[in-house]
């Protein structure tokens, strides 16, 4: 049996037990791992942590609203070839020169196993995941222009992230290993902060994490602050030399935490003492 516990988090990325488990299941079964979760919970960072943990390269395929499945496989640059044909200064008889591999193609042809991140798959058209079904299943694709089949020399570890903007098709989901990154609880959050700020004063951390969670408890916020925003905030707090006791009371540099204008004004103009935020009077 191959070694199952291949990934167990890295120095700068703490993965929960469930996440480690699911990453290892995906690696062992050679299936793509689909990651969902609140924004800012480290979905994208996970892939680089895995590539670091497995000591291999990371390829990132960032999906946009205009991305098509074909882009990830290969592009046949017809316009270039047409152009070259016109001026006659290149050898145009070999179509291979005009076939350019996309990220998935590169991952398949790589001489060693790589980690491929397909970032924000839900940004693309609704049909996008369906167009990749066989390619992800069999890890190969066919190029009709050159009558070639590109198959993976080593099954890449594929990490797919989604923000749930669009529902993904069932057939696609069936082929994936799924993990929902849960928002960390206070204890886990402390561990995460420690990883980012190993020398952080205990008092600052306690105050900041406490203030952060009480902000998250406000249920009328439009966008709750996330882990990455907390990290940014602590960075500012440290850089500015804010005294620990002022953190919870004054909520300095609130803009690093709250990115929605209305949220910002609501908290900034309301009572700024986070301890009083817990009082229902604030929630009127």
């Amino acid at each position: 049996m191959q070694n199952f516990e291949q990934y167990c988090g890295t120095g700068d990325y703490i993965a929960s037990r469930a996440l480690q488990n699911d990453v290892n299941v995906a690696i062992a079964l050679g299936r793509p791992l689909l990651i969902k979760g609140e924004p800012g919970t480290g979905k994208t960072l996970l892939a680089s942590s895995i590539s670091e943990g497995l000591e291999t390269d990371l390829l990132v395929w960032t999906i946009k609203s205009t991305t098509k499945a074909q882009d990830g496989l290969y592009i046949y640059d017809t316009v270039q070839r047409l152009n070259d044909a016109r001026f006659g200064d290149h050898d145009i008889s070999d179509i291979k020169h005009y076939i350019k591999h996309g990220k998935l193609g590169q991952a398949f042809t790589s001489p060693k196993r790589v980690v491929l991140l397909i970032d924000e798959i839900d940004k693309a058209d609704i049909e996008f995941p369906n167009d990749l079904l066989t390619e992800l299943d069999e890890m190969k694709f066919y190029i009709p222009e050159t009558a070639e089949t590109v198959s993976a020399r080593h099954r890449p570890v594929i990490i797919i992230t989604s923000n749930a903007e669009k529902e993904l098709p069932d057939a696609f989901l069936r082929r994936c290993v799924f993990h929902y990154i849960q928002f960390p609880d206070a204890a886990f959050m402390n561990d995460i902060v420690k990883v980012h700020f190993p020398n952080l004063e205990e008092k600052i951390m306690k105050e900041a994490v406490e203030a952060f969670f009480s902000l998250r408890e406000l249920d009328n916020l439009r966008k709750k602050p996330s882990t990455s925003e907390l990290i940014d905030w602590i960075k500012v707090l440290v850089a500015s030399g804010t005294r620990p006791k002022d953190i919870g009371r004054e909520l300095p540099f609130l803009g690093a935490l709250l990115k929605n204008e209305q949220d910002y004004h609501q908290v900034a103009n309301g009572e700024t003492d986070t301890r009083s935020i817990r009082r229902p009077s604030f929630l009127r």
């Binding site: 049996m1 699911d22 290892n24 299941v25 995906a26 062992a28 290993v177 799924f178």
Partner: peptide
């Protein structure tokens, strides 16, 4: 069968969830 669940119910809980449940 490949032994990914270890011999422990917690691993099995996560394994089964990641493979059987595809939406939070």
């Amino acid at each position: 069968e490949k032994g990914f669940a270890g011999n422990n119910l917690l691993s099995f809980y996560y394994l089964a969830r990641s493979l059987l449940v595809k939406s939070e």
